[in-house]
Simulated scan of single mutants.
Amino acid sequence: MIGASATGRASDGVAQENADAPRSAVLAVVDAALAEDAPWGDVTSEAAIPAAARATARVVSRSAGVLAGGLALELAFARADGNLEVERHLDDGAALEPGALVATVHGSARSILLGERVALNLAQRLSGIATLTRRYVDAVAGTSARIVDTRKTTPGLRALEKAAVRAGAAHNHRFSLSDAVMLKDNHLAVLAAQGLDLTDAIRAVRARIPHTMHLEVEVDRLEQLPAVLAAEPDTIMLDNFTLAELRDGVALIAGRAIVEASGGVTLDTVRAIAETGVDVISVGALTHSAPALDLGLDIDIDIDLDIDRAPVP
């Protein structure tokens, strides 16, 4: 399973941190993107640029933000042409200002142009996620709440997007359906149809999973909490609760489980949610609604005069 190594179980139900997405996952994404973008090569560059032309290109930030996707950017050029020299000047998580030099690429002009769009697409997308994530993290600074992502990621890009969340100084929730048990309303409805009350239903699930598996239960009203608490889950998600309900929920749970808030979380509301005392705030917008960060590639092509006069091969 691509990206499985990016996930680890922690005692609080949030994935352990890794600095980068697994290289294998990034390579798979980059190779697929290059095959999509140039299935038979870059016919424009091959027709217009001499094969011997060399170039130096600089990847530059056009706006303020947080960098992510440096490995994807590097590998996009490296897979376009293994002879390209790629130097990354900033690490993921670095703060960017307009004009910041992110990376330099030197080598075949054709090859640089071949890798340009894939490199920029991935770095812009991932840096946008890191930038938005950092805004959420900054919004709850000084509280005990941690910001986490969700599984609302772009299909095929989950390992990269979750790494971008980490670059933005937040944390990962479960990576996949295989990582932890999360009983949501639909699961509980199916269990209730079997004649089990809420407590017995959760206990039945607990009995079927390894003792090392994290168990989280979603509730959508305060009245469910006593029955859920009796089953002793590891985490309780308070879904779409008002601020007053969140405070009451935190008081009722009283440290007997990790408290996660979800639903209705925006940059305008996240601070108040954190101040209710919840432990974790999950934000789908980190990955499904982050705008791309503006990065550009400035290129200087060095074409020898003799080459310039010769016909393009």
Rank of each mutant, 00 (worst) to 15 (best):
K162Q: 09
A164P: 00
V165Q: 04
H171P: 11
N172Y: 04
H173G: 03
R174K: 13
F175L: 14
S176H: 10
L177W: 12
D179A: 13
A180G: 13
V181T: 08
M182S: 11
L188D: 01
V190M: 14
L191N: 10
L191E: 08
L191F: 09
G195S: 02
L196P: 03
A201Q: 11
I202G: 01
R203L: 15
A204Y: 13
A204P: 04
V205W: 02
I209C: 14
P210D: 13
H214Y: 09
V217P: 01
E218L: 13
R221V: 05
Q224F: 12
P226S: 02
L229A: 08
L229W: 01
L229K: 01
A230D: 05
T235A: 12
L238K: 06
T242R: 08
E245Y: 05
V250G: 03
L252E: 14
L252W: 09
I253E: 06
A254R: 13
I258Y: 12
I258D: 05
E260H: 03
A261C: 07
A261T: 09
T266A: 10
T269M: 08
T269R: 06
A274F: 11
A274R: 06
T276Q: 03
T276C: 02
T276F: 08
D279C: 10
S282T: 14
L286K: 07
L286G: 07
T287Y: 03
H288W: 14
H288E: 12
L293I: 08
L293W: 04
L295W: 01
L295P: 03
L295C: 09
G296W: 09
G296R: 11
D298F: 11
D298V: 14
I299L: 15
I299S: 11
